[in-house]
Amino acid sequence: MHNAPELVKTKKAIKKICWANTAGFEESDIVILGIPDETGSHSIWSGASKAPDRIRRISNERDIYYEKKLQCLALTTNGLQDTRVHDYGNIKKRQIPQAFDKILSSSKIPIAIGGDHSNTTPILKAMAKKHGPVSLVYFDAHPDFVSHTRNYYGSVITDSLDYIDVKSSIQIGIRSPETEEIANIKKHSLKVITPFDVVEQGMMEISKTVLDTIKENVYISFDMDCLDPAYAPGVSVPVPIGIESRDAMHLVKKIVQRGMAGFDIMEVCPKHDLNNQTSHLASRIIGEVVSSCKV
């Protein structure tokens, strides 16, 4: 049993995400935790820190139904497996190293809900401490490969280069790079898949490319703005001409079924959402990951 001291969670009481099916950390296979922090965001649209609690609430409103007073959990496309899921609650950004050390030392799979995308850098550092440099599958509209400014949501890849194996990493959904980011992608030979690649090559070829690129100890980081705003309008930096939610989920499931070390979902911005559509989609994505996961 891991003897790390108990983490200090944020004070606000929250409802557990609907996919959680066990109250105990020790008995779980997957641990979900929220990181309600957007201190690394430069977006003019604020509010990503509200996402963890909003996603939890919407999951309980829309992914649970009632039939003759019987409460039932909505099924995912894989059905619901026997995977044991614990919702740990929210932590502060500074607690990421301690939280992930506790989760990984107990051989559990972490699923983090942000918050802005800069939260992924300390997560990757913790993952690399456990597994060595990880294969990173980075779903995003932006490469986040700025290097003239550091330690914010636009420099995640630059800040994480020591923690990832670039040769076995890949970015998916990219369509809004800066000139500097294009140069950095070329310099480091980072593979990139754009929405136009998905259209031209089709999902079978794209899936093969992704699975041929990654290795063991895969970490998936999913910025909701990788999706077209038609599917996910409530994000911090929406960019038109994105990938479809179905295609993105297909790729995520293929990766997860192969085996993953961890997952995060970032940049939901509830204040700018439409009828909580993006929060509900985020909940469904988490449900699909849980039901596809090998534990």
Rank of each mutant, 00 (worst) to 15 (best):
G40R: 12
S155N: 01
K253H: 05
I55A: 08
T39W: 00
K93A: 14
R94A: 06
L104T: 10
Y138V: 08
V252T: 09
V295W: 01
G24M: 07
C226P: 00
G234R: 09
S160K: 08
V289E: 02
S135R: 05
I109V: 11
H148V: 12
L251R: 04
I214M: 13
K191L: 12
G89P: 04
A51E: 03
T213K: 07
Q95K: 03
G242W: 10
P233F: 12
K125W: 06
S41W: 05
I243W: 08
S105C: 05
Q171D: 07
A248I: 07
S59H: 06
I91G: 02
I206K: 04
I157A: 00
A126I: 07
I285H: 00
H86R: 07
S107E: 13
P122T: 05
A20D: 06
R84P: 00
S107R: 05
Q257Y: 00
N151S: 14
H42P: 00
G154I: 06
T39F: 03
I113M: 10
R56D: 11
S147C: 10
P238D: 06
V137K: 02
V199K: 15
M260I: 14
L190F: 13
C18S: 15
V256D: 02
N151C: 06
I170P: 03
K68D: 11
H250R: 14
E67S: 14
S221C: 03
L281G: 12
N90S: 04
D247K: 13
I123R: 10
I182P: 07
I241N: 14
I14V: 11
H42M: 05
Q98W: 04
K130S: 04
T121H: 11
V166L: 06
K129I: 03
G115E: 08
S43H: 02
P133S: 11
R57M: 12
D247F: 13
N276D: 15
H117P: 05
G132S: 12
L73K: 12
L136K: 01
S118W: 15
I44N: 14
C293R: 02
G262I: 13
D53E: 14
K130W: 01
I17S: 02
T158N: 10
G287S: 14
I17R: 03
K16Y: 05
V8M: 06
V218Q: 09
L124G: 09
T120V: 15
G287F: 13
A126T: 11
K69C: 10
N60A: 02
